[in-house]
Each structure stands twice: as structure tokens, then as C-alpha cells.
Computed example of a mutant assay.
Amino acid sequence: MNDTANLPPRPPGFEHVSRVLETLGHPHAPRWLEVSARTAQEAAEALGIEVGQIAKSVIFRRQADDAAVLVVTSGDRRVDEKKVAALVGAIGRADADFVKASTGFSIGGVSPVGHATKPVTLIDRDLCRFDIVWAAAGHANGVFPLTPAELELLTGAPVADVVQEPAR
């Protein structure tokens, strides 16, 4: 049963991701947090989990064709733009307007699924350290749990080494 069925209406992005996940047969409905989780740290604190278990969505703009490039990375890692560029072509930073226009979501709530335009997507190999990770569900207060394998299945994206080496 959908956990959100008896709740008051939520913001459109959250409702959209809820429908997409249900359509895709994902077994866990998104959870609405009473606090904002715009950052991986905020989300981890709200959920009582490690920051690395947050599957944060980072959007870049591919220079060749202005395509959105989504990198879903572990919350305790930083994307290595050179590694991403080696896989998808030269990329640049994406501003808030580009993120909203290409994904349908605002920064801080970008889900790995349900985008306005399907992005080029890569999944950070370091997410596979965890049995369960939590991704944004279309709004800064929305999250949903999944395994790294489910993330791969839902997005159709490859798992790759796309992050900087962690500091030792």
C-alpha cells in the first residue's frame, strides 16, 4: 500500500516521483520529511543514517549538445568532473534554471527518476558500499529508499568510477 495515500496533497514534484515509482513497480513509496533535506548532510541527519547512504543527484550540462548529465553519487563523495567528461564528453556546471528546465525539479530535490527530459545518467560505484541508499523524491523534503541495484534498474544507468578519491 502507498504510504502517501491518506496524506494531504504534497508538492507536484513529490507527487510526480511517487507516481513514477509506483508505475515502475518500486516497492517503497517516498517518505515526506518534516525538515528540509536539501543537502546530503541534512538528509542523513533527518533519516539517522550515514551521509554516504544519501544518493545525491548532481546535474551537469554537456557542452556538445546542452544535454543534462545526472551523476548519482554517494553523499560523502565529490564528483570528479574529469572522470565524468571522459565518459560522456565535456561538461560544465548547470545553474538552477537549467536544472529546473531539464529535470523538472529544483536543486535539492532532484530525483534520479521522473525527469522532464531523460538525462545522460551515471551512478557512482561508491554507492554500492551500502545495502540501502536514499534518493531525493522530487522535493527537498522527499526521499525514498532503494538498493544500488534498484537504482541501476530504475535509471538504466551504468555504474562507474566518477568521484574524487576520498581523503584518507
Rank of each mutant, 00 (worst) to 15 (best):
L24N: 01
I132Q: 05
A116E: 03
L70F: 05
F130Y: 14
G142S: 06
V84I: 06
G48N: 08
D124Y: 11
T23P: 03
G104R: 13
W32H: 10
P166F: 10
G48C: 11
I59A: 01
A86F: 08
T73Q: 12
G48V: 14
S36E: 11
S106F: 08
E45R: 10
C128K: 12
A137I: 11
D76G: 13
T39L: 01
K118P: 14
I107C: 09
A137L: 05
D76H: 14
D76T: 02
S74V: 02
L47K: 04
D161K: 02
E150A: 13
H139S: 09
L154P: 15
G52C: 02
T155I: 09
A64I: 08
P12D: 10
D126S: 14
P166W: 02
E152C: 08
A46Y: 00
V72L: 00
C128D: 11
L21S: 13
P9M: 12
V35W: 00
A64C: 09
K118F: 10
E45V: 09
A44W: 01
T147H: 01
F144G: 04
G114L: 05
E45G: 14
E45H: 12
D97C: 10
D161G: 15
Q41P: 14
P145C: 05
G156H: 12
V143K: 15
K100C: 01
E165Q: 15
G108C: 14
G52N: 00
E150H: 03
G142R: 02
S18V: 06
D66G: 09
P119H: 00
T147L: 02
H28A: 04
D76P: 00
I54Q: 02
G92S: 05
F105V: 05
A160K: 07
A149E: 12
V163Q: 10
A96G: 15
N6L: 13
D66E: 14
H26C: 00
K83P: 03
G104C: 12
D66W: 07
P145T: 06
E45T: 05
T103E: 07
C128N: 15
D3I: 07
N141Y: 00
S111K: 08
D65P: 10
P158H: 12
L33S: 13
E15D: 14
V20I: 11
R168T: 14
F130E: 11
A135R: 09
T147R: 00
V162C: 02
F144H: 13
D65T: 03
V72K: 01
R129E: 07
P11L: 13
V88D: 15
K83W: 08
L21W: 07
T39C: 02
V58R: 02
Q41M: 15
E152V: 06
L70Y: 08
P11Y: 05
A55Y: 06
S18C: 12
V88M: 10
T121M: 13
L33E: 14
A137G: 12
P148H: 08
